[in-house]
Design a protein around this nucleic acid. Structure first.
Length: 394
DNA sequence: AACCCGGGGTC
DNA sequence: GACCCAGGGTT
């Protein structure tokens, strides 16, 4: 058995399995470069099932490069709200503008050209070039790394530069002709997603079983080699959700059911964590009397840090709300205007990170209950416990 | 090379 | 709770 024969067998087994077992995914319907691109960016560090509904909505709103290049920034972030890694969305728009201006609106399909676009690295460039461009290119993601690490009992950390380089050479030694590379790459990923699972690989169903060294040794779970992660840092935060009755209520107090509240939000810095998204802030209202409700505590876990938050809801007067906006502006170096916006616009119009969502849901519930209550009493300070509200925290 | 950047499903 | 997901950018 010569090496060429082994490679042919490997490719044939893989591609036949793929044709029989691949999932019908929305972005596999055609080879449109724009849609392949959007799907690959959304799929970065994100499970396919999670990303599918975002993909459908995104394509509806931004059907092509041109519409994306003209997207409103806040609307774009709202479309991405909840997906995470928000710089992906900003890079998408930047790249769309580059494609319009530097490529005359024609999507580049060569790997080296694709890598010049923001948000497109080694993996994504290879995926687009091979799938949409039918070019000979590898696309090595976490799935491919796991599959090949196990196949050859790969002894280095593929996350490090040396290991990544060797892994690339190994995978590329198995690449078929250009026309088949798109399916080859997707097939390897599909094996990783459906068969060569991190904790319980189904080796007896694997078309590559007879090529797999770790299958023979029984050491599948020792690959890929993993490096030690540093522990997350913990930050404590005191969140103040500040609400006021919206102006509409004052004009029309005969219709209590139409009453609603505005909530103060401000834009986070354009750099760093959750950049460009909105938040409630940590400024306690001061001065006149206002009603306070306890919104409890919540721990939000990011990849690299944890926010341990406590939050309160303050309902203040319309007059105090305007002064508060000015105070908040003066506190910020680069003031993104603190503003009171209708409660129902939050998360749909103003992208709110998932980290704050539990507090927003609780505040909304409390405020809606307030609307349905007769507000004839003169209560000024009120605290509500959380005993029966745990469901609101997820 | 090390660090930063989200959120969610799964076991 | 630990793992890890169709990774990329910055320092």
């Amino acid at each position: 058995m010569n090496p060429t024969y082994i490679k042919e067998q490997f490719i044939q087994n893989l591609l036949i399995w793929y044709e029989r077992n691949k999932r019908e995914l929305a972005f596999r319907k055609d080879k449109n470069p724009y849609r392949i691109w959007i799907s690959e960016i959304m799929a970065q560090q994100t499970r396919i099932e999670t990303m599918i509904p975002y993909f459908e909505r995104f394509i509806q709103k931004y059907p092509d490069v041109k519409s994306l290049s003209q997207a409103d920034d806040d609307e774009l972030m709202a479309m991405w709200q909840g997906l995470g890694y928000y710089s992906r969305a900003r890079s998408l728009k930047k790249a769309a503008i580059m494609i319009m201006e530097e490529y005359d609106g024609v999507f580049p399909l060569k790997k080296e050209e694709l890598k010049k676009l923001p948000g497109i690295g080694d993996y994504t460039a290879g995926a687009i070039a091979s799938i949409a461009g039918r070019q000979k290119a590898s696309a090595i993601d976490g799935n491919v790394i796991r599959v090949f690490s196990r196949l050859f009992e790969f002894g280095e950390d593929p996350g490090k530069a040396s290991g990544k380089k060797q892994m690339t050479a190994l995978v590329e030694a198995f690449l078929p002709e250009a026309d088949l590379c798109g399916d080859f790459n997707q097939a390897l990923m599909e094996i990783g997603a459906l068969v060569c699972l991190p904790k319980s690989p189904s080796c007896s169903f694997c078309p590559l079983e007879k090529f797999c060294l770790s299958r023979k040794s029984g050491k599948q779970l020792e690959y890929p080699m993993k490096s030690i992660k540093k522990p997350r840092t913990i930050e404590n935060r005191e969140i103040w959700v500040i609400a006021r009755e919206s102006m509409e209520n004052k004009k029309d107090h005969s219709h209590v059911s139409r009453a609603s509240y505005d909530i103060k939000i401000q834009k986070r810095s354009e750099k760093g964590l959750l950049s460009g998204l909105f938040e409630f802030g940590e400024q306690k209202p001061q001065g006149k009397e206002y009603r306070v409700f306890d919104l409890g505590s919540y721990i939000h876990i990011f990849s690299h840090k944890e926010w341990h938050m406590n939050a309160k809801l303050a309902v203040i007067s319309y007059e105090d709300s305007e002064r508060l906006c000015q105070q908040t502006d003066s506190l910020q170096k680069k003031p993104d205007h603190a503003q009171f916006v209708p409660m129902d616009d939050i998360a749909s119009v103003y992208a709110l990170p998932t980290a704050f969502m539990p507090f927003f849901n609780r505040a909304r519930k409390i405020l809606n209950d307030q609307v349905n209550m007769n507000q004839s009493d003169s209560m000024t300070i009120q605290t509500i416990g959380l005993e029966n509200e745990k469901d609101e925290f997820k």
